[in-house]
Each structure stands twice: as C-alpha cells, then as structure tokens.
C-alpha cells in the first residue's frame, strides 16, 4: 500500500484508516496524555512563580525573561538539544512541551491576580483575612476565570506542539503526520492533523465548561 498514493488511488484511503483504528486510538490517547501532563506540570511550576512575582515586583522581569527565552527556542532545536541527555523518552517530549507553557501561564496568572479589584482586597484585609487566606480564598478564586483563559491557550498551543515531538518518537498523532510525509501518504497526514485540530477544539470547549463550573459567579455579572 505504501506507494499506492502516487498511482491514481483515491485521495483518502479509508481501508488504511479502518486497519489502523487501534493505532489511531492509542496515539490519540498518547497525544492527550502528553498535553495534559505538560499543562499540569506547567501550571504547577507557573503558579508559585507567578504568585511570587505578583507579590515581589522585581521578580517578574527575570522570570518572564527566562520563560520568554525558552518560548523562542524553535521546538525542533529544543528536542535536538535535549536528546543526548534525556533520550528518546516521553520525558524529553515533556520537558520541551512544559517549557513552552511557562510564558503563557506565568504572564496570564500574574495579569489575572493583578486584575482582582482593589476594593475587594481592601475590604477583605480590613475584615481580617490573613495574607495566606487572602491569596487562596480571595485572590486566586477571583483570578480563576482569567487563569483558565491562560490554561485554555496553553492547552491548545500544546496540542499543536505535541505533533513535533513525533521526531523523537513521542508525538501522539504527530506520528501519522510524520509517516505521511516520509511516504507521501496523504491519508496518514490528514488523519494526524485533522484529529489534532479536533482534539484542540474539544479540549477548548471542555475547559470553557470547566471554567463556568469553577467560577459560576462570573457569568452573572461582575459589577463592582
């Protein structure tokens, strides 16, 4: 079947898709797992850094500078650099993916925290919230809708980036795109890219629903 594409075969080879449905399923799951893990780890790193920069202005510039540098490294190059140290493993892919989420997440969380209305903070301090209670019970919950917008952006970006990790054998649906490129087999490339876009759209929609769940009040008008 490999070279069939060139000789007048149908544009999409449905039988290939049917034959590889198990493989497609496994790669889709891998794709989602990599994305999920990258965003969760990215969030775990970004949150404390963002909270610290929110409270200590001087820290914001250096931390966003580092995250910005990481963000500008071409993804292909990053994997090439990492490969000798971390090998052809999921770990390598994750390091790269996580490093791309940091800039988006840190900047978003800091902006979200800074957007919490000052009158609410003043009233809360005046009533006797301690610094820690203020952070976890007022500032973070109120910043949540904006933080979630950052998480959505990071998630959608990461879903796209995972395909590049196919080069080191951990690319989820990117594996099909690469396969199609190597063998001039358009069906595989289409399967990989269409499903990748599909995953991004679904993930985004699910996160919007999650956002409404965690911040039901933001729907009902935030008049201050």
């Amino acid at each position: 079947m490999t070279l069939a594409q060139a000789s007048g075969q149908p544009f999409i080879d449905w039988s290939w898709i049917a034959d590889h449905s198990d493989d497609i399923y496994v790669r889709s799951i891998e794709h989602l797992q990599l994305t999920g893990a990258a965003v969760v780890i990215g969030l775990a790193i970004s949150l404390p850094l963002a909270v610290y920069s929110y409270r200590h202005q001087w820290f914001y510039s250096p931390v966003t500078w580092v995250a910005g540098v990481l963000y500008t490294i071409p993804s292909l190059a990053l994997f090439a650099f990492l490969l000798p140290y971390t090998g052809l493993r999921a770990r390598t892919a994750l390091i790269g993916l996580v490093s791309y989420t940091l800039l988006i997440l840190i900047r978003n969380i800091v902006a979200a925290l800074e957007g919490v209305p000052t009158d609410v903070l003043e009233a809360a301090r005046g009533m006797g919230y301690s610094r820690r209670q203020l952070l976890w019970r007022v500032e973070v919950p109120l910043a949540l809708p904006v933080i979630m917008a950052g998480v959505r952006l990071a998630t959608v970006t990461t879903i796209g980036l995972v395909t590049v990790a196919a080069l080191i054998g951990r690319g989820g649906l990117g594996t099909f795109i690469l396969l199609g490129m190597n063998r001039f087999f358009i069906t595989a490339t289409l399967v990989g890219s269409v499903l990748s876009v599909f995953l991004a759209v679904i993930a985004d929609a699910l996160l919007v629903r999650l956002e409404r769940r965690v911040a039901p009040w933001s729907d009902r008008g935030l008049a201050t």
């Binding site: 006797g128 911040a215 009040w217 935030l222």
Partner: peptide
C-alpha cells in the same frame, strides 16, 4: 489580623466578595 476581625469595616465601594 486579630485587631481587624474585632472592628467592623465598611468602605464606599463596599468590596463585597464577588465569588
């Protein structure tokens, strides 16, 4: 923090917790 809990506080913009 203890001091403030013992004193009622109202400001013009009120600052109710929106969430």
């Amino acid at each position: 923090v203890e001091l403030r809990r013992g004193i009622g506080y109202v400001i013009q913009s009120i600052g109710l917790l929106p969430h």
